[in-house]
C-alpha cells in the first residue's frame, strides 16, 4: 500500500461528505466549491432512482421521496458498478430496514420491487431458448415457456391499481408474471393466482401438464381432475396467445 494514511483520510472524508453532507474539519478543500460535489453525486443517484421508480415518485410527496433518497445514500454503501443496477439496492435496503414511511404505506416495498423487476427483466442477459414446435398435445407434451421471466410474489395489488387507491385491507397473496417479449424486448406482466404460479413453476421444470395436474389434484379436496383440466386450459391458451408459452419443446 503506497497510499499514506492522511491521503486516504482526505479521500474518505470527501466521499463521506458527498454521501452524508458531513464535512470533516480535516478535509483540505475549498468549502464554497466542495458543496458542488455533494450536489452532483446526489443528482446522479437521484436521477437514476427517479427513472427507475416513476410510480413511486409519482405517489410520494417530493419531501418523502427526498428523505428516502437521502436515507439510502447516506446509510447504504452501493455495490453496483453499473448505475442502472443501483435501484435494486434501494429495494433491498428498504426491505431490510424500512423507515416509518413504510408503515404508513405498507405497500411501498411491493411497489418498489414491482418497478425494479420490470427493469431487471428488460435488461436481463439473453437466455437460451430451446427449440420449439407448434405441433403437440397440450396435456401430454412438455410446453416451452419463455425463459426470460420472473414470478413476483406481492402482498398488495400494486400491479393492478394506482397506489393511491390501495387499501390496507387488500393485503393478500398476489403473484405477477413478468416476461420479456421475444420480438420487441418489451416487458409484459400478468396478474396470476397462487395456483397458476405453482403451475408455471412445474411447467418450467419440463413436466407436461397432465402429470402436474394429476399431482395437484391429489392435494386438493373436492376438485376432479377433469374440472382441474377444464379450469387450467383457458389459462394455458392465454399464455400461448401472449407469447409466454412458446409452443412445445422439440424432442432433442
Amino acid at each position: 500500500m503506497y497510499l499514506a494514511k492522511d491521503t486516504y483520510q482526505q479521500q474518505s472524508d470527501l466521499a463521506t461528505y458527498c454521501r452524508s453532507g458531513k464535512l470533516s474539519d480535516n478535509l483540505e478543500v475549498l468549502p464554497r466549491r466542495v458543496k458542488h460535489y455533494r450536489r452532483l453525486v446526489y443528482n446522479v443517484v437521484n436521477d437514476s432512482l427517479v427513472s427507475a421508480f416513476p410510480l413511486t415518485v409519482d405517489f410520494l410527496s417530493q419531501k418523502q421521496w427526498n428523505t428516502l433518497v437521502n436515507d439510502f445514500f447516506s446509510r447504504h454503501k452501493s455495490q453496483s458498478a453499473r448505475v442502472w443496477e443501483m435501484p435494486k439496492e434501494f429495494c433491498e435496503f428498504f426491505s431490510a430496514s424500512p423507515t416509518p414511511l413504510f408503515s404508513t404505506y405498507p405497500f411501498l416495498t411491493d411497489l418498489l420491487w414491482f418497478e425494479w423487476f420490470e427493469i431487471e427483466i428488460f435488461m436481463m442477459e439473453d437466455q437460451v431458448f430451446q427449440r420449439s414446435t407448434t405441433d403437440g398435445d397440450l396435456l401430454k407434451d412438455p410446453l416451452l415457456i419463455n425463459p426470460e421471466h420472473r414470478i413476483l410474489p406481492l402482498s398488495y395489488p400494486v400491479h393492478l391499481k394506482n397506489a393511491r387507491k390501495i387499501n390496507p385491507d387488500e393485503k393478500g397473496a398476489y403473484y405477477v408474471l413478468l416476461f420479456r417479449e421475444t420480438g420487441t424486448g418489451k416487458v409484459q406482466f400478468l396478474d396470476i393466482s397462487a395456483y397458476f404460479s405453482l403451475l408455471i413453476d412445474n411447467l418450467k421444470k419440463g413436466y407436461p401438464l397432465f402429470p402436474v395436474l394429476k399431482e395437484f389434484q391429489q392435494h386438493m379436496d373436492g376438485s376432479s381432475l377433469e374440472q382441474l383440466i377444464e379450469n387450467t386450459l383457458p389459462f394455458i391458451n392465454k399464455l400461448r396467445e401472449i407469447g409466454f408459452v412458446m409452443g412445445f419443446k422439440e424432442n432433442q
Binding site: 503506497y2 497510499l3 499514506a4 491521503t7 482526505q10 479521500q11 474518505s12 470527501l14 466521499a15 463521506t16 458527498c18 454521501r19 460535489y37 452532483l40 453525486v41 446522479v44 443517484v45 437514476s48 447504504h76 454503501k77 452501493s78 455495490q79 453496483s80 458498478a81 448505475v83 443501483m86
Partner: peptide
C-alpha cells in the same frame, strides 16, 4: 471509496503517495 460507489468523479489529492 470505503466500499461504496458514488457514481461521479471525485478529485484525487495531488500527492506523491497517490
Amino acid at each position: 471509496c470505503d466500499n461504496a460507489h458514488l457514481y461521479d468523479l471525485l478529485p484525487i489529492p495531488f500527492r506523491e503517495d497517490a
